[in-house]
Amino acid sequence: MTDQTQTGAMPRPRRAWPRIRPARGLGFTLLALLALCAVAGPDLVGQDPAKQSLLDARQPPSAANLLGTDHLGRDMAARLLSGAQLSLSLAVLSVLTAGLPGTLLGIAAAWYGGWTDRLLTSFADAVLALPGLLLVLMLAAISPGSWWALYAGISLTLWVEYFRYTRQRARIVIAEPAVEASRLLGLTPALIIRRHLVPEIGPGLLTIAAFGAATAVTAVAALGFVSVGVRPPTAEWGVMMTELLPYWREAPFLILQPVACLVITVLALHLSVGGMRRP
C-alpha cells in the first residue's frame, strides 16, 4: 500500500554497513552454533529420533538420554536436533526463494517505472490482501503434512515485503543526481545497481531476511500446533510442543525444550541484526 512511504519521504543519510557490536556478535555466535547443530543433526548424540521405548517414556535427563525422553520414550536430544535441521533449512530456503524474486522485482519496478511499476505494485497489493493464512492452509491441504507445501506457502507470503522495501528505496536512489549522471555516462545497469543501490538497501534487506527467517520458524511451529504443518512422527519443534503440551504439568522439562529452542533461534536472529527495528 502507499501509506508507509509517506513518512519516509525525507531522504536519510546513506547508512554504511553496520559495525559488529557485542550483542550482534552473540547473535552470530548463536546462529553459527545452531547451524552446526542442524548440520550434524541427530548423529551428534548418536540416537535415533524415531526409536521408541514405550516403557521408558517421560524420563528425566540421564547419561543415555542427555535431555530425557518424550511421551513415547524417544530421545529428546535427537529429536530436537532433527527439528533444528527441519526448521533452519526451511527458514533459509524460504528466505532465499522469497528474497531473491522480491528484491529483483522491486528493482525492476523502480528502474522501469510506468506500467511495469503499476502492474507489479497492484499484484503485490492483491497478494497482500489475500489472507496469508488461507494461502498456507490451502497449500498445506493440497499435500497434507508435507514439507514443501509449508515452505511454498510461507515463501509466497514473505516476498511482498522484500519487493515493497526494495522498490521504495530504489526509487529514491535512482532519482539521485549521482545515479542520473552514471546513467548519462552510459554505465551498465548492473554496475549502477552495485555501486549505488546495494550499499543503500543491503543492510535493510539483511534485517528483513532475519525477520523473515524468524517469522518462518515461528509460523512452522504455529502451524504444527493446529495440526496443519508437518505431521507426527516427524520431529519438528511445533509438533513436539503440541505433543508434549499435555504433559506440561508432570514433565515440564519436556515442553520447555522445544520452546527454548525456538526462543534461542528467534533471539539469535534478532540479535544478529541488532534488535527489532524494521528498515
Binding site: 500446533f225 528467534v266 534478532h270 534488535g275 527489532m276
Partner: peptide, 18 residues
Amino acid sequence: TLAISIFVRAIPAFALGV
C-alpha cells in the same frame, strides 16, 4: 525493554496463553 521484547516475541502464543 529491547531484551524483553525479543524474548516475548519468541515465545509461542499458546505457551504464553497457558
